[in-house]
Amino acid sequence: MQITIDLPDSLQFTEADLRTELAIALFQQDRVTLGSASKIAAMHVMDFQKLISDRGICIHYDVEEFQQDVQHLQERGWL
């Protein structure tokens, strides 16, 4: 999906800034997973985790996400 938003130049937001803020907001609202949020922000998941941790945002990590992580690691031959 592509969305175009016209913002005043005075806001001085980059596309990366907006993607990051959107990802954080959606993650905080439990609308996306940590992995999805990091993709929206175009960041490695560990970098995104550090960013939200630095902002004092709780990383809600449930059993389902853990199982997905284990599956991804197994698919890559890391487990």
Rank of each mutant, 00 (worst) to 15 (best):
residue 52 I to A: 07
residue 32 V to W: 00
residue 21 E to R: 09
residue 40 I to N: 02
residue 40 I to L: 07
residue 44 H to Q: 04
residue 53 S to M: 12
residue 55 R to P: 13
residue 48 F to H: 10
residue 25 A to M: 14
residue 31 R to M: 06
residue 52 I to H: 02
residue 38 S to N: 12
residue 26 L to F: 01
residue 31 R to T: 05
residue 18 L to C: 13
residue 20 T to Y: 08
residue 55 R to A: 13
residue 23 A to N: 03
residue 47 D to P: 04
residue 24 I to F: 10
residue 55 R to W: 09
residue 42 A to M: 15
residue 53 S to I: 10
residue 26 L to W: 00
residue 18 L to S: 07
residue 48 F to P: 05
residue 36 S to E: 09
residue 44 H to N: 02
residue 33 T to M: 01
residue 30 D to T: 00
residue 28 Q to H: 14
residue 50 K to F: 07
residue 52 I to C: 04
residue 36 S to Q: 11
residue 55 R to D: 12
residue 50 K to A: 06
residue 20 T to F: 07
residue 22 L to M: 08
residue 39 K to T: 11
residue 18 L to H: 09
residue 36 S to D: 09
residue 27 F to M: 08
residue 47 D to T: 04
residue 34 L to S: 11
residue 48 F to Y: 08
residue 47 D to L: 03
residue 20 T to E: 11
residue 37 A to P: 09
residue 41 A to Q: 01
residue 45 V to D: 06
residue 18 L to R: 08
residue 51 L to S: 13
residue 41 A to W: 01
residue 29 Q to Y: 07
residue 53 S to F: 09
residue 49 Q to T: 15
residue 36 S to V: 04
residue 40 I to H: 03
residue 53 S to E: 13
residue 32 V to N: 00
residue 37 A to R: 06
residue 46 M to Y: 13
residue 36 S to M: 11
residue 43 M to G: 03
residue 55 R to V: 13
residue 18 L to D: 07
residue 30 D to A: 02
residue 40 I to K: 06
residue 54 D to T: 15
residue 47 D to A: 10
residue 37 A to T: 05
residue 48 F to M: 05
residue 41 A to L: 02
residue 31 R to V: 02
residue 47 D to E: 08
residue 20 T to G: 08
residue 44 H to R: 07
residue 43 M to L: 12
residue 44 H to D: 03
residue 21 E to D: 15
residue 20 T to S: 07
residue 45 V to C: 06
residue 19 R to N: 08
residue 31 R to G: 03
residue 26 L to N: 00
residue 51 L to K: 12
residue 37 A to M: 12
residue 36 S to P: 03
residue 24 I to W: 03
residue 30 D to P: 04
residue 53 S to T: 12
residue 30 D to M: 03
residue 50 K to S: 06
residue 22 L to Y: 04
residue 29 Q to S: 11
residue 28 Q to A: 14
residue 37 A to G: 12
residue 37 A to S: 12
residue 45 V to K: 10
residue 41 A to K: 01
residue 29 Q to D: 12
residue 38 S to H: 11
residue 42 A to L: 13
residue 21 E to S: 13
residue 25 A to R: 11
residue 31 R to F: 03
residue 20 T to I: 10
residue 22 L to E: 04
residue 50 K to E: 12
residue 37 A to H: 05
residue 50 K to Y: 09
residue 29 Q to F: 05
residue 50 K to C: 06
residue 18 L to G: 09
residue 45 V to S: 11
residue 32 V to G: 00
residue 33 T to F: 00
residue 28 Q to K: 15
residue 50 K to G: 07
residue 21 E to F: 11
residue 49 Q to N: 15
